[in-house]
Design a protein around this nucleic acid. Structure first.
Lengths: 215, 215, 215, 215
DNA sequence: GATGAATGAGCCTTCATTCAT
DNA sequence: CATGAATGAAGGCTCATTCAT
């Protein structure tokens, strides 16, 4: 019975098997980042990993599953970096600023993951046009952000905007910042992040507030 | 002598040829929207247009040129709709709001163009990962927005933010709005647009201002 | 009724039609010479001639007929140059030498025709592998040469070799000379021709003869 | 990791892979011989070999490499047959005769190789018209022949002709003999070869010599 | 007579996937 | 567990040819 063939059966994986999967996922990230999703054939990924093409098929049910794991892995790595920092912010308004700066901070040294994500997001589309990855993966992120926003609103440090719109706009602006950075490698990412944080803060703070409290 | 073989010579096109090109571009938009860039093969596009595959090669030098024309066409159509409305706004601060609402207004009835654009933007990538379309095509848009922003700053209706960051963030938030709408067809696009306009206005207006002047 | 559709009906051609055919044949020669037979598409030939693709199909029944006419035309032009010179040779032994030198003389200033011929000869093959052009076109040439050789044998100025083998070898050595010249443009064609003439003379002259009589 | 993708690294090949490559090369020879280079598509070659089209792409980097290997293989097979016989000849003058007879002897039972070579030589052309195969492949052959000729001249068994012209003419006459034979299957190849050997001997022997010494 | 337009077959290649070893 | 080998579909593209205008 092949490992990849079980959608939910979740068999225990051997250590060596996990290692191989991690190695392949990592090679996939590098490959998509370098060559784009369209050119990231299993052959090229295997070559990057220094293994044979068949191995990938053995460990993953197909290209789709591999890409799912890639996205999963990147997201969880980002979360591991960002969440602890955000948790330390004094309040939800400050957390917004921290969130933006931390993500930028992380991505500055992990461009490959950025490129891979972007490549996969738009490269893999279901026929009906609904990008399956973006949705499946973004929803939990939106939820988490919204929860924080709502808490801030209740506590009075954030004004009463639509949390979903804010979450979507925030995430989009961050993505846009990265996209711009990718095409303009000399762009000052940290300065951009700081400026964006200011924009978001102004759009989210209560009417009476000025910007004093959040730096 | 095939039409597509002229690299730059810009030969005069017959009426019927223009019609065919338009028909093919339109079919390409529909196809990319429905199936994603990766699956938008010339065969499928031809099928959508009800013509033979060779016709496309006859009228366009290749898939790349076709996609260039698609992007070009969509952008100019959007501009034709949005720019006149923006020009009527009383000042640059109001223009920001108008811009967002107008684009949303247009896109509400032109979802396909949206999907096609998104598909092409990330589907066509140069090996180094720099999406060639997005950059080439976004730059003029950024420039136009920036000019307006700077004018507003000089006139004092907008505060002194970094115009490039604002332009990128604005455009991203709009794109994000559409992306969300695409995956959530029941989402209230106009309400989202109004809310986004408010966010942007708050982040762009001078410190002393309140939201009174722009509604 | 289209001109090209008559295999043997030989309708009278208008002057303008003949001009077009000549123009197309000439463009075909240039194209095959430059790009090789495989790359000499009707489109490219039409482009060379500055006319539309359809014109060729109108005047010739197909690519095959066009190529037939090309070969025909080149052969007859060569014959027009070579035969008068050969006819002036004092005897058949001298004629051999003259033949070689005259052909070389002609080809030196008509490389394109050479290249075109070579391209067509091997480019167009019938499925059974018997190059149809070479045979159909070479036979009369062999016949003419053989006739002269036989006359020389009867008159005693040539020894008693197999005339067909001599004709084939002579023609091949000439072709080989040109082929070599084509790939080595700096090669001294005239010197080669003179040397080859000596080789042939030695192999064809009667046993008792020395080379004195033929220079 | 596909075998064909290694540009020069010369990886060790498995036995089974070599077998497949040989099988494909052999099928290619048969196909080109039967249908001509232009019609020898990978599809037809695969069909001849009884395998799927993809297999060829798997084992060879492309059609070009396959054809290179075909030429290589044929040449080395011919050399393996001819060279030992030539080496046994008493002197260089006799070697010339042996060379012609041996090649004819070999080709008599390997017509397909002949046809394939001819097809490839002129089928594959660089745009500038310089047949890449013929030159690259013929030069070493010319060199080898010339060396022998020069040795014969120094030893006094051959007269003092231009060795390059002789090599080209000899090779051409042999090729012409085969070409004729191909189009005239009933032609007596051995008789032709004997007659050609006589022609060459006469053109190459020293002035004083008669044909006595070489029969 | 000539053209632009359209066709559809065929080309070489790449690819995800399967399978025997 | 891993590999090399094979498959067959699909991709973009070129081409000779046909035909209405």
């Amino acid at each position: 019975m092949e490992p990849g063939s079980r959608p939910s059966g979740r068999r225990k994986r051997t250590f060596i098997e996990e290692a191989r999967r991690a190695q392949i996922v990592s090679a996939a990230i590098r490959t998509v980042a370098e060559a784009g999703y369209a050119n990231a054939s299993l052959a090229r990924i295997a070559q990057h990993a220094g293994i044979s093409k068949g191995v990938i098929s053995y460990h993953f049910s197909g290209k789709d599953e591999l890409m799912d794991r890639v996205v999963e892995q990147i997201y969880s790595t980002i979360a591991d970096f960002v969440l602890p920092r955000v948790a330390e912010a004094p309040d939800e308004r400050a957390a917004l600023r921290t969130h933006i700066l931390a993500v930028a901070d992380y991505m500055r040294s992990n461009r490959e993951q950025l490129l891979a994500l972007a490549g996969i997001f738009n490269g893999v589309q279901t026929p009906v046009g609904a990008p399956r990855y973006r949705m499946a993966v973004s929803e939990p992120v939106y939820r988490a952000i919204e929860e924080r926003l709502r808490a801030g609103q209740e506590r009075g440090v954030l004004r009463d905007f639509d949390v979903r719109v804010m979450a979507v706009s925030l995430q989009s602006a961050i993505d846009g910042m990265f996209a711009y950075w990718v095409t303009h490698p000399d762009h000052d990412l940290d300065a951009h992040a700081a400026e964006l944080a200011e924009l978001i803060d102004r759009s989210a703070r209560p009417d009476s507030a000025d910007s004093a409290g959040s730096t």
